[in-house]
Design a protein around this nucleic acid. Structure first.
Lengths: 347, 347
DNA sequence: CTGAAAGCGCTTACAG
DNA sequence: CTGAAAGCGCTTACAG
């Protein structure tokens, strides 16, 4: 005969240990168990201890669905990223998810493909799950998306970007100043003696455009800006495209002495193309990238780039969101995590 | 005055359009609406139509939490992958998620880091959400994990691998025969005239080991196997490690005339190292990889590799799971999607 | 084929 | 500080 167990349940019982089981065993009401376990103040410390012990003893685990239904708030956090094929966003995702999971939240990922209406649709679907929080990439969204975020009342933190100008106002966000990063790398190239510095970009999402503006202003400052130095291609970023852009630039603007690519995959592709074409880097032309992705340090020559703190961004954004979900105000509403110029052999 | 709306709700009302609202408006009972909307047979076709129309009119969307609580089955599918830093698994994830989302399921991702106990812990957490289905990488799991999967009764499909031997038995899975792929590439190298073919591997997860076995058996078949040709390193796979392994092999086994790396990132790193060291590929030594990852076609020389159908695997596995979640038996329980040798310049 | 009723396992005003 | 009761929005035996 098996040992006596909990009282018999109804015909629809699931066999799960429920909050009521804990209440009965601890000799208190379900309400009290609920409050004690969620750490609501205004519960007798002695009771908290008893309830906690009993719950642990019985192996009680709250049912997320029941909790979500009753409280109108799930333990999901939705995260929207543009692409999974860019390691940048994967790093962001992993860091955020690790932090959120440690706090008991499940991550619901949505991939927008840089498409505003896909983003809107994704957000709509995710809001049905009444997420406890929202993590979205960038500050650029269409009106419908913005309204959805607003009216849902769900705490939201924006990733990768910061509002321009005064940061006293604006939405919660953690990132770095893309424009400054673009300008900083450009000035770095200038300091190495380069004078005809092209900017080559793909995808042309808002953050890429900000890097472009940074490059422009740095060149204008130096009196070296020319429109013919801009190579903008809306196609998705890739190694292959980087090679193509490199060949185009070398053929059509042979006077260029440095190329600043908006992303490392483009720059890596350019480096491979240079090898193929027998063009010396950095002697004939210098090459710089952005993000410091995997492999950039292994290239020949190794790639000079801007290291961006994406793992830190993911983690910090998750922490900020955690605070907001607790009803607290985060220490900083606009968190700038900066960037770093990594000087290697290609410049 | 605003137009008259739905009847007043209780003080805890959420403002949501509920199934009862639809029932009232359509003049049927909530049970009927529930059945009609879920496409249960044994509902009058006329009613189905009326209910559907009403529900659309009111903009009714079922509440996932309520549904999960009542039915003991959520609309989540949990997927366990080893790493997010390997593009292979990201491709798998994206393909599966796209397919599942189209069918109305949310994907809950867990990253195991090739750690059996982390996998177990992750699975435990996910099962609390009563997922409708499970997607797990590989066939190797610890006992606790296996038991959890078993006792949870949740439909489960395994990714990337197939049971060895007769496939009449075994768990649901979609993948390809890693051993055969390892052997096929080795035979390909033999056919190109290489005689001292090293196998260099990292991570050493079960699928890598199978490729190793394939390589071994092909060399043994040809009477060319030697234990000194094996270079196994348990560290995580990376470009940098590929370079290191390449240098080691070249120094310690100068007679080697080809190296088969278990993954493209290692092979890419080796290619870069060869460039750096001035070692001619493939003339001095041929290099082959596995998976055909991003950039392999852009290397100099371009990398010969095994193309693996990971996007197809993700999609097919999701489809198989969809069938299982519907209570149907999939057409094939063990789906072999094969692989393809991609001959490029490095061999 | 359809409906009334109970139930899923929590949270939360409302009293005390 | 604690409890009884109602409620969240569905599904599902059980009758008919």
């Amino acid at each position: 005969m098996p040992p006596p167990v909990l009282p018999p349940k109804s015909h629809r019982s699931t066999g799960r240990v429920t909050l009521s089981d804990v209440a009965r065993a601890a000799g208190v009401s379900p309400s009290t168990v609920s409050r004690a376990l969620r750490g609501e103040r205004s519960v007798d410390p002695a009771l908290i201890e008893r309830v906690t012990a009993t719950s642990r003893l019985l192996g009680y685990v709250p049912d997320p669905a029941a909790r979500a239904l009753a409280s109108q708030r799930s333990d999901h956090v939705a995260i929207l990223i543009p692409l999974l094929s860019n390691a940048l966003f994967v790093d962001l995702l992993e860091a955020a998810q690790t932090t959120l999971r440690a706090a008991g939240y499940q991550t619901l990922m949505g991939v927008t493909h840089y498409d505003a209406s896909e983003e809107e649709q994704l957000l709509r679907e995710q809001l049905l799950h009444r997420p406890a929080g929202l993590l979205v990439t960038g500050l650029d969204h269409n009106d419908a998306t913005r309204k959805l975020m607003e009216s849902s009342q769900v705490p939201c933190v924006h990733l990768m970007d910061l509002p321009s100008g005064d940061s006293a106002e604006g939405p919660y966000c953690v990132g770095f100043r893309q424009t400054q990063a673009g300008a900083a790398m450009t000035r770095h190239l200038l300091s190495k003696g380069h004078r005809r510095i092209a900017f080559a970009a793909a995808q042309l999402d808002p953050r890429v455009m900000q890097r472009l503006y940074g490059w422009r202003s740095a060149l204008q400052e130096a009196g070296l800006y020319e429109a013919t130095l801009e190579w903008l291609n809306p196609a998705p970023s890739s190694l292959a495209l980087g090679g193509v852009l490199f060949e185009q630039i070398m053929r059509q603007q042979p006077a260029v002495d440095a190329i600043f690519f908006c992303n490392d995959d483009l720059a890596q592709g350019a480096l491979m193309a240079a090898l193929r074409l027998g063009i010396a880097v950095p002697d004939r032309v210098a090459i710089a990238g952005f993000n410091d992705l995997t492999g950039s340090d292994q290239m020949l020559p190794s790639l000079t780039t801007v290291r961006t703190p994406r793992a830190q961004i993911g983690q910090a954004a998750a922490r900020m969101l955690l605070a907001l979900m607790q009803g607290e105000e985060p220490e900083t509403a606009r968190l700038d995590l900066g960037f770093e110029i990594i000087q290697r052999q290609s410049t």
